[in-house]
Design a protein around this nucleic acid. Structure first.
Lengths: 237, 237
DNA sequence: TAGGTTGCTGACCGCTCGGTCAGTTAGGCA
DNA sequence: TGCCTAACTGACCGAGCGGTCAGCAACCTA
């Protein structure tokens, strides 16, 4: 019957854009290894060889997508934050804007490169991985710098700036794993909640004791974990 | 020269334990797809066929490892926490113990199943994924429940319990990505820092304003992100 | 309408993967 | 000492992967 040949050619730039977009979404859903070049080609509507007419290699494809994710992060969060003089306002801006960027990426609008940024470092070549890591580290350093600035102003609680910076970014990046645009909270609300949590913590001030149960927990973990002995049928319980 | 044939046979249970341990570490380092069965067999010191004498399939191998990770989490964190009556103490225990468990997994002692738990869901079959997800959800529900309990006691700030629970677990799980046992902070210290952060937040109380810059950020993101147009050479800047 | 440029195809390649199987060898026990 | 069981090998398989290449066909321009 030969329903339709669908010989809709696109211009080079259009096709390249389309390939990157489709690939980003696919890698986001199935992972780098799970999204084969044939899959991507099928989704685009051309042959694998057609894809390779525009893209040099799969690794380059991933690197370009992740670089674009970093570009987006820098243009939307890092550079605008850089011109905010007040450290506290800068911190709020970073948390809220980055959270909303990730929540937006989870939406159907498909700006998934920011999400892939986090997950697929293993697919990169060592040289590419180094470049991406370097840009990530610059971001972490900026956040830590802001925290140290706040410390200098006496606004920061007694918290290790490095651990705080990583933890803060952790809770933001984790958003990509659980946020659903059709959930009960909107993007704006969820960004607001995270900001409240990060700056103010969970509990009211009067309930905070200086020391916690770390000693207790340390005892619980004192004896090494049991040897891994696993019964053949995947550990039901 | 034939240095050594190393024909050291092990008993079944010993070999199985060894395989699971080596596989866990390898999957942790290279990812599920990056760790081939031949690699694992080589690391164990036997043939791939030898491995398949004990393991039914690679997917089962991953599932068993992740199930063991969940077992560990339940035995070390969830069940002990379940018997703590006071909600605040329970929350502190969860944060500190889970953090230390993850920090310990990053150590050479190689209890990496807890780390793999987070990362490799894509490698599972739908049925297995469902089982793991179910156990994870139970954990999230428990944390959220604890937060709601605290809310009932008037101890919790005005924060959405669901968002808070996910964010809290996010900052804990993120530990696996940045904690290094040879770093400046010990396991205990880092667990303590995360607990302080989570319960008390970053800023001193008197600096907290009710509303943040969400509106501003919303404006920044109002115009859709630029089309993905990427120049061929991976986005240098 | 001729001709070059460029988007794209179909067939193919080498390789590695997860997995199999018939057969071999070591160790424990009678 | 002999034998049975269980640990383990080596050779092999089909499938799917990333990637290539000669050639075709659509479009732009002159």
């Amino acid at each position: 019957m030969k329903t339709q040949k669908k010989q809709s050619r696109l211009s080079g730039v259009e096709r390249v854009d389309q390939i990157y977009r489709v690939a980003a979404q696919m890698i986001c859903e199935r992972g780098y290894d799970g999204a084969s070049m044939s899959d991507i080609a099928d989704a685009v509507g051309i042959t694998k060889a057609g894809v390779y007419h525009f893209i040099p290699s799969k690794k380059e494809l991933l690197f370009t997508i992740m670089s674009y994710g970093m570009d987006t992060l820098e243009a939307t969060v890092i550079r605008p934050a850089g011109v905010i003089a007040d450290a506290e306002q800068r911190l709020r801006f970073i948390v809220v804007t980055h959270s909303m960027l990730i929540a937006r990426s989870s939406t159907n609008e498909g700006h998934d490169p920011v999400t892939i940024l986090v997950e697929e470092e293993l697919g990169l070549s060592p040289a590419h991985r180094r470049k991406i890591r370097q840009r990530k580290r610059a971001y972490v350093d900026m956040v830590r710098g802001t925290l140290e600035e706040l410390n200098g102003e006496g606004k920061l609680k007694e918290i290790n700036a490095t651990a705080a910076a990583f933890s803060l970014l952790g809770m933001i990046m984790w958003l990509a794993r659980w946020f659903r645009p059709d959930g009960q909270l909107s993007r704006e609300q969820v960004a607001e909640e995270i900001c409240k949590f990060a700056l103010g913590g969970l509990l009211h001030q009067e309930f905070l004791q200086p020391k916690t149960v770390a000693k207790t927990a340390s005892n619980t973990l004192a004896k090494p974990l049991p040897k891994i002995s696993i019964n053949k049928n995947g550990a039901r319980r």
